[in-house]
Write a protein that binds this DNA or RNA. Structure first.
Length: 694
DNA sequence: GCAAGGTC
């Protein structure tokens, strides 16, 4: 073997550079010096790779080093036709704020014989690896380039990776190149097109700073908007239907039992009346069945990013964007582990007990932590995972004890508490309850009642965010007979679903593969920033007229640009590229060809987009006048808000519409076609569809 | 001024 060689090692982020350096140098604080970028230090130590003595120089980037952009002459909005953006040359460049990292890499690469890439082992990481290669090779053509493959920051894994270096995977990087290019071309072309088309035609009046009103289109943000609009439409089109049911209760010395009709509810009034009459004539109830069973309520799986966002939204009404900001703070200060992870199971190598031990001092949950560690208490249970593992980061867990820091905001305290309590819950036994179900028979009709008592709370003692409802019911024995205390015929009305909450929206995105754990909150925030949707105090999202108009415009064209399919197809193609079934060129060509055709067609049909905007901005303009308060003929009560009446009126352009008097709080409305010359409210009921009770 | 993806 020759003498010592210099090896430049690059990780995706500073924390990984430090961890890997510690492991390889077998020292908790390896020697380090400053680089040109103040975040990315350079660690130095000696190491031996397969007998070759190496002087290791270990630094990092911060995610992608480069961005993709159109060539200069296509960057200005009016410099070209947006359709040109499907062929315009694109290039990768290092943005200004990453220049110091680039310079560090160049300076160090000149001194080295080898370059070892320690980027995350996913597609994006592989792509970043090639960005680093580009920069380093430009200043040193003789570099020997190697890739370290590791899935966890633990000794065995890291030493194994260092001793078994491989080639970087061009296919993985290609998949990301294709994704970037498609996203840029589609996003920029549609954004410019719809912004320039609609901004000048409509006086879209936003109270805030709208000097740079941009109506953006993106393959992630639009499907996200699509979910919001789709739910809103589902609510609007809901026709409340009246139903009937029979309820029965029985009061005894032990308390009250409420029995539900096992038929649930029926929409046929006559039918329910006949059954009810039978029950009233022979009201004696006979107990047919009494079941007792032990039920378990399991603690949640270890915490992934999406779950953290969902739970912070549900428990504290924190937005996912704010949650990630606070989590990042806590992570930077060392209180919680890395907050961007898909993993919801702990590696068997993680020492869970040590994490619990640290929390024993806490005034609120410390005693619970002590009980967990007491083997005699039997509270401990090894956590069960949810089956997700990104092979890079553990689930989110506390890494340092705190009883609250002076600099923390209320949200920092809450989020730290959630992470700790969630962790303690994960390693706890499930809650145990006893459930009793009683079935009775009245005149041949079956009713049932159930009750539950919690026998052992276990994890519920620490996880104060969850409860397990249930009430006691008196005891019954099979064959026992009694006369019900009440037996009533009740009516109800079917309700529309609720608007999507932030947690619902995250679930929709996760299922459809829209965005990643690190970006989903960005796409949600974008809907609010672009005035496409609003969020109420209960974190529920409602599309604005603008958001609804955009989705409706494309929907009327017959395109599913606002549905998640487009992104799923792209994801599928990316996978094909990364395993070598399709080439990057092939995927780019076909995908962009299709999107260009779609773009040209959309432009040809821009009248649909304009029409959709007219509908909503007509409606929006009206709200500034007071004419919507003028009464019209009442058609029916509003099924959406269930508070005001729907009335028939003429809109400003002379067309008929049926709108809710609750406007603008309630935006329920039906717009009749302009070809209708007369409209009136009658009591006649359509004989073919015979709508039910309204 | 435009996308989505890394990360500080």
């Amino acid at each position: 073997m020759s003498g010592t060689i210099n090896v430049l090692n690059v990780a995706e982020k500073p924390s990984v550079a430090k961890s890997v350096s510690s492991i390889l140098s077998r020292s908790p604080n390896p020697h380090s010096r400053e680089g040109r970028s103040r975040y990315n230090r350079i660690f130095e130590f000696n190491y031996s790779i397969r007998g070759q003595p190496c002087h290791m120089i270990f630094t990092s980037v911060t995610g992608h080093l480069m961005e993709i952009e159109f060539e200069e002459r296509f960057r200005k909005w009016h410099s070209c036709d947006p359709v040109d953006l499907y062929q315009a040359p694109v290039c990768k460049y290092v943005p200004e704020e990453k220049n110091d990292i680039k310079r560090t890499l160049e300076e160090e690469a000149r001194k080295c014989q080898w370059l070892v890439l320690w980027l995350d082992c996913d597609r994006e990481g592989e792509n970043i690896a090639f960005e680093v290669i580009d920069v380093c090779r430009a200043v040193n053509h003789h570099l020997v380039i190697r890739r370290a493959r590791f899935s966890a920051l633990i000794d065995r894994e890291i030493h194994h990776a260092a001793q078994n270096l491989v080639e970087p995977n061009q296919l993985f990087a290609d998949a990301v190149d294709a994704r970037q290019e498609i996203d840029l071309r589609i996003g920029a072309s549609f954004t410019r097109f719809q912004t320039m088309l609609l901004r000048d035609k409509f006086n879209i009046d936003f109270s805030a700073d709208d000097k740079n009103l941009v109506l953006s289109y993106g393959p992630c943000q639009f499907p996200t908007l699509g979910f919001v609009v789709e739910r809103y439409w589902e609510i609007n089109s809901h026709e409340p239907e009246e139903f009937w049911t029979i309820n029965c209760s029985h009061k005894s010395d032990e308390g009250m039992a409420t029995f539900n009709w096992m038929r649930g509810h029926l929409f046929d009034y006559t039918c329910v009346v006949i059954i009810y009459e039978m029950c009233v004539q022979e009201p004696t109830a006979t107990v047919k069945n009494v079941r007792q069973a032990e039920k378990l309520k399991y603690p949640p799986h270890p915490l992934s990013t999406i779950e953290l966002e969902k739970r912070a939204s549900r428990y504290f009404r924190m937005s996912s964007e704010h949650t990630m900001k606070v989590a990042e703070d806590l992570y930077q200060a060392g209180f919680i582990s890395y907050p961007r992870t898909e993993t919801d199971c702990f590696s068997s190598r993680t020492d869970l007990h040590i994490i619990v031990q640290e929390q024993q001092r806490h005034p609120e949950w410390g005693s619970y932590a002590q009980r967990l560690l007491d083997a005699g208490a039997g509270l401990w249970r090894n956590p069960t995972g949810g089956g997700h593992d990104d092979k890079a980061h553990p689930p989110i867990h506390p890494t340092k004890f705190s009883a609250g820091e002076p600099r923390w905001s209320q949200d920092h305290c809450r989020l730290y508490e959630l992470v700790v309590r969630h962790f303690l819950a994960c390693v706890s036994q499930p809650a145990v309850g006893a459930e009793t179900t009683v079935e009775i028979d009245i005149a041949g009709e079956l009713f049932s009642a159930s009750g539950r008592v919690i026998l052992t709370r276990n994890y519920l003692d620490v996880y104060r965010f969850e409860s397990w409802g249930g009430s006691m019911i008196p005891s019954y024995v099979v064959g026992q007979q009694f006369i019900p205390t009440t037996l009533t015929l009740d009516s109800g009305v079917t309700r529309p679903p609720q608007l999507l909450s932030e947690a619902d929206l995250l679930t929709c995105m996760d299922k459809a593969g829209i965005g990643t754990d690190a970006t989903m909150h960005d796409h949600i925030k974008k809907l609010l920033d672009r005035f496409y949707a609003t969020k109420d105090q209960n974190t529920r999202f409602c599309p604005t007229s603008l958001g609804e108009a955009l989705v409706m415009g494309y929907d009327n064209m017959g395109y599913e640009l606002w549905k998640p399919n487009l992104r799923s197809m792209m994801e599928f193609d990316m996978k094909e590229v990364s395993v070598g079934n399709k080439s990057k060129h092939e995927v780019l060509t076909t995908c962009l060809q299709q999107m260009k055709a779609c773009f040209l067609d959309a432009r040809l049909n821009k009248i649909k987009l304009l029409e959709a905007m007219e509908v909503f901005f007509e409606r929006s303009n009206r709200s500034t006048g007071d004419e919507h308060h003028t009464a019209g003929e009442v058609v029916r009560s509003c099924g959406l808000c269930q508070e005001a009446d729907m009335v028939l009126r003429r809109s400003r352009d002379g067309n008929f519409m049926v709108g809710c008097l609750g406007f603008p709080q309630c935006r329920n409305a039906v717009w009749l076609p302009g070809s209708i010359l007369e409209a009136a409210v009658t009591r006649n009921i359509c004989s073919s569809c015979s709508p039910g009770f309204l």
